[in-house]
Design a binder for these strands. Sequence first.
DNA 1: TTATAATATAATACG
DNA 2: CGTATTATATTATT
Lengths: 169, 169
Amino acid sequence: MTSFNHSNGLKRQKKLSSVVSSEQDLLMDNKPKRKRISPDQFCLLSELFEQTDTPSHELRERLAKKLEMTNREVQVWFQNRRAKVNRTRLQEQEHVKKVKFNYWSSSSSSSSSSCSSSPSLLPHDLVFHPDVTPIDILATAAAYVQQWDEQERKKQVVQPKRKSWRPWL
Amino acid sequence: MTSFNHSNGLKRQKKLSSVVSSEQDLLMDNKPKRKRISPDQFCLLSELFEQTDTPSHELRERLAKKLEMTNREVQVWFQNRRAKVNRTRLQEQEHVKKVKFNYWSSSSSSSSSSCSSSPSLLPHDLVFHPDVTPIDILATAAAYVQQWDEQERKKQVVQPKRKSWRPWL
DNA sequence: TTATAATATAATACG
DNA sequence: CGTATTATATTATT
C-alpha cells in the first residue's frame, strides 16, 4: 500500500486574516479564495462550448474580456468542462456496453483471415436476445449516434476560420 | 495530510478473455490512459535532474532501463520538468520586479552614455523607500540569490564528464 | 455530500 | 530542444 503525495507543496491554505491588507498582499500568498462564475458568465461559456470545446487563444481572449475573466480562468473552465463531458460520455458508454452485453451476443466470430467474401458493413451475425426491450435498443442507438456526432463535430471544427458564428461586436 | 493511493484504478482492463471477444473490442476504445510515475522513479529522476537538467541520450537510456521506463518517457519527464522550473523562475522574477518597483526607486537615472567613471558594482543611486520592511528586503534578496544560484548551477553543469556521480553499475 | 474552481503532471503538437 | 496546450488525476472549497 504505497502512499505517495504527488502534489509538491501546494499552498492554498485557509487564512481568515483580518481586513488589513498592505504590502503583505504582495509577499504572502494570500488566498485568492475560490471564485465562482456568475450565471451570465456560465451562459456565455456554455454557448461557446456548444460551438467548440477547444476555443482558440484569440477567441478565449475576447471571451475573457467580455466576461471580465482571466484568459487562464476561461481556459480552466473549458478544461474542466471537457473533462466533465468525457466523464459522462464514458459512463454512458459503459452503460451501453453493459446493455449490449446483456442483450446481444455474437453467434459466430467473423473469420478475419479470409478476404471478406461479403463486404457487408452490418453485423449479420448478431442474434436477438429475448430479453431486450425497445427502450434498450433506442438507448443503444442514441448513445452511438451521440458518440459519432461528437467525433464528427470534433473533426470538422478545427478552428477553420469560420466566419464569426456570433456577433461579438 | 494529502496522501494518494498509487494503486488506484488505472483502468487496467485485464484480458479475462472469455469465449466471446469480437465486436466489443472494436467498440470500446481501450486507451492506455495515463501513466503516473512511481515514487521511486520520481526520486531517481529528481536526483539526476539536480545534476543535469539535460541528460545525454546514453544517460537517459541507462536511467530508463533502471526505471523500467521508455527512453521517450524519461525525455518527456525532463522536458516537463525543465518547463516547470522555467515557469517558476519567470514567476519569481516577476514577483521580484514587482516588489522592487514597489519599494525601491532610483533617485537618478544613471547616464548609460558615459563610460563608467566609477566602476562600482553596487547601485548607489538607490534610495530607501519608507514603507519597506525587513522581511521585504529579505524576500527580495532571497529571490535574487536563488535566481543567481540556478543560473550558476546551470552554467557549470554542462555535462563536463564529471566522474560518475552515481554508481549506475 | 456533491459540484466545481484550481492545481499538477504525463503526453502531444508545432516550430 | 522549448513552448503551448490537452487529457487526466487530484486537491480543495462551497
